[in-house]
């Protein structure tokens, strides 16, 4: 009993001396309030400690503190984890879009004598819906086939500049006409293959 009292008083006295030392060390600022609060809590715990032991021997204060701090850490980890999941989903959708873009480009290039400049699309990004991953809107920008143009340019001599421009213009209009015919074909092909409403497939021809 006497030892127990001695330990208790010793703990309290040492803690108080410690606290006064630390208050000297502390910068005098608004932080002091918070530090004082925590230190006061610790002092209360040290004072209450033997009373708790008398009433209930099973309780372990350190254990309690540890439990709650683990809980806080766990919550923090869960938060960062959900952020990670979100970024992962975004990356997945981006990769998916890029693959579809490539596929569309290849398909159009393979079937038609045109160049694909850009492919824009909107897909259903809601993972819970049944249509997740379906293409909602598709916009394709086409340009006349570059290879033919360059062939034409190579054929014509450099000296005849005026004629050159005219012939180029004629060629361009020809290509445009061809594209106008092809556009419908591409649109139907895309609408059928990706099961999109053909109203949502927009195809532009760029010069």
């Amino acid at each position: 009993m006497f030892d127990f009292l001695k330990d208790w008083i010793k703990n309290i006295v040492i803690l108080i001396i410690f606290i006064t030392m630390l208050e000297l060390l502390l910068p005098n600022s608004s932080m002091k309030k918070y530090v004082n609060m925590v230190v006061g809590l610790l002092l209360i715990i040290v004072i209450l400690n033997p009373l708790v032991l008398i009433v209930n021997k099973n309780i372990d204060i350190e254990n309690e503190v540890f439990k709650t701090s683990v809980e806080i850490d766990k919550n923090a980890v869960v938060l960062t984890h959900s952020n990670l999941e979100k970024t992962q989903e975004n990356q997945m959708i981006q990769v998916y879009k890029r693959k579809i873009e490539q596929h569309i480009k290849e398909r159009v290039l393979h079937n038609n004598p045109v160049d694909v400049k850009n492919v824009y699309m909107e897909i259903d990004e809601d993972q819970t819906s049944d249509n997740f991953g379906n293409i909602q809107n598709l916009k394709i920008e086409l340009s006349p086939n570059v290879e033919k143009k360059s062939d034409n340019e190579n054929l014509q001599p450099v000296s005849q500049i005026l004629v050159d421009i005219k012939s180029n213009k004629e060629n361009d209009t020809e290509h445009e006409q061809i594209d106008e015919q092809i556009v419908n074909q591409i649109r139907e092909d895309m609408a059928e293959f990706y099961s999109i409403n053909s109203k949502n497939v927009v195809i532009n021809v760029k010069q």
Partner: peptide, 13 residues
Amino acid sequence: PILIALLNIILQL
């Protein structure tokens, strides 16, 4: 954590 431990102790007292 210290605050919660203190609360637990007081509740058990």
